[in-house]
Design a protein around this nucleic acid. Structure first.
Length: 362
DNA sequence: AAGCGATGCAACCGCGGGGGG
DNA sequence: TCCCCCCGCGGTTGCATCGCT
């Protein structure tokens, strides 16, 4: 277990500790305390550097260390403290009895960070991921591929399904989140109850069937852990990742990079970049109608730092995402009341109610 | 059962801060 | 004020294990 020795200068041993070494260290510290870590190895008859001894003691051998899985409460504490302190693991550890900074750091890197990313939250800022601004237009544009697919017989079935995928995954995420909202926030005026429940449930059922049939073919990330689904996590990160993956498979370099000139001879490449370019050129409009939405009306509407994303869940660690998605291009003014718990009318993207989509998935 | 990629985590590395000379 | 030493912290590595095919 652990890192293997990379060098052995001074003849000091590195790498995993043996039970005998552990015992020597424990015995010495119990008798004398650690004192100077630098001097300890010689005094304790250990062929290790002081640094290695200190690390072994503080991260593993200390008697007050609590081992085992992190509880939900501990997880919440870490999330909360990280949002305040950042990667100050030792500071966070002082608030969690028996947990070491190393353990918390590992837990963060292997679990919590991924969870936040999957929720569409930037694990560094604890705010909705800003790369969505760049990615969402591409996702929508990808969804528009469906129209192109209908216009040409030269698209392969995987490309058609990729467009479906973008729509369906987005919808899937919203439905998952909404289902959670209806469970957790029944008192909230901005819950799923605001929309036609039968319609939503029909869509959800269709989604479940469709996903069962397709997801393993396209997107392992879509198979959200049951745990996460129960918590209503919005898999926008998965959507972006999987869609990007699909695009990369098709050699469309769309990930925040300038659109390249279409290559010669490939009808798909001739058509798609043009469509996407149009989409990207109209990004301002997209943001106006879907994303750009300052909480405070006095804020500069052109200042990206004042924009907030349409969010899907209300039970995120910091309530950073606090409302349902909306998209009502015909009534942009109503969206100015967007915010947590203000009873604003909320709208789902139009394409979610695309009749052809509903028919396709059922 | 075997192969292989993904994941978890112990341990190392390098840097920066504090204290003493 | 500068330099050196020591300690502690955060980032990274790489092995063991898991789980899927």
């Amino acid at each position: 277990m652990g890192r293997s020795p990379c060098c052995d200068e001074n003849g000091l041993k590195k790498g995993p500790w043996t039970p005998e070494e552990d015992q020597k260290l424990i015995d010495y510290i119990h008798k004398h305390g650690h004192g100077s870590w630098r001097a300890l190895p010689k005094l304790a008859d250990l062929n290790r550097c002081g640094k290695s001894c200190r690390l072994r003691w503080t991260n593993y051998l200390r008697p007050d260390i609590k081992r085992g899985k992190f509880s939900a409460e501990e997880e919440q504490t870490i999330l909360h403290l990280h949002s305040i302190l950042g990667n100050k693991w030792s500071a966070i550890a002082t608030h969690l009895q028996g947990r070491t900074d190393n353990e918390i750091k590992n837990f963060w890197n292997t679990h919590l960070k991924k969870k936040l990313i999957q929720m569409g939250i930037d694990p560094v800022t604890h705010q909705p991921r800003t790369d969505l601004f760049a990615s969402l237009p591409q996702l929508i544009a990808l969804a528009n591929l469906k129209d192109l697919i209908e216009q040409t017989s030269q698209f392969s079935s995987i490309q058609a399904e990729a467009a479906q995928l973008a729509k369906l995954q987005y919808l899937n995420g919203m439905l998952n989140s909404s289902a959670s909202l209806s469970n957790n926030n029944n008192n909230s005026p901005s819950s799923i109850l605001d929309i036609d429940q039968n319609h939503a449930m029909n869509l959800l059922n269709s989604m479940v069937s469709w996903n069962k049939e397709h997801n393993s073919k396209f997107n392992p990330a879509l198979e959200l852990e049951a745990e996460d689904q129960n918590q209503g996590l919005f898999p926008i990160g998965s959507i972006i990742d999987s869609t990007t993956q699909l695009l990369q498979q098709k050699q469309y370099h769309l990930n925040n990079s300038p659109i390249e000139q279409p290559s010669q001879g490939d009808p798909l490449l001739d058509l798609v970049p043009f469509n996407l370019q149009t989409s990207l050129n109209s990004e301002d409009h997209f943001i106006d109608t879907l994303v750009k939405h300052p909480i405070d009306q006095d804020q500069d509407h052109d200042d990206p730092s004042s924009w907030i994303l349409p969010s899907l869940i209300e039970n995120s660690p910091k309530n950073a995402m606090s409302s349902l998605p909306y998209n009502n291009p015909t009534d942009a003014s109503s969206s100015s009341s967007y915010g947590a718990g203000d009873g604003a009318s909320l709208y789902w993207p139009d394409f979610c109610f695309d009749e052809s989509l509903i028919n396709d998935v059922s």
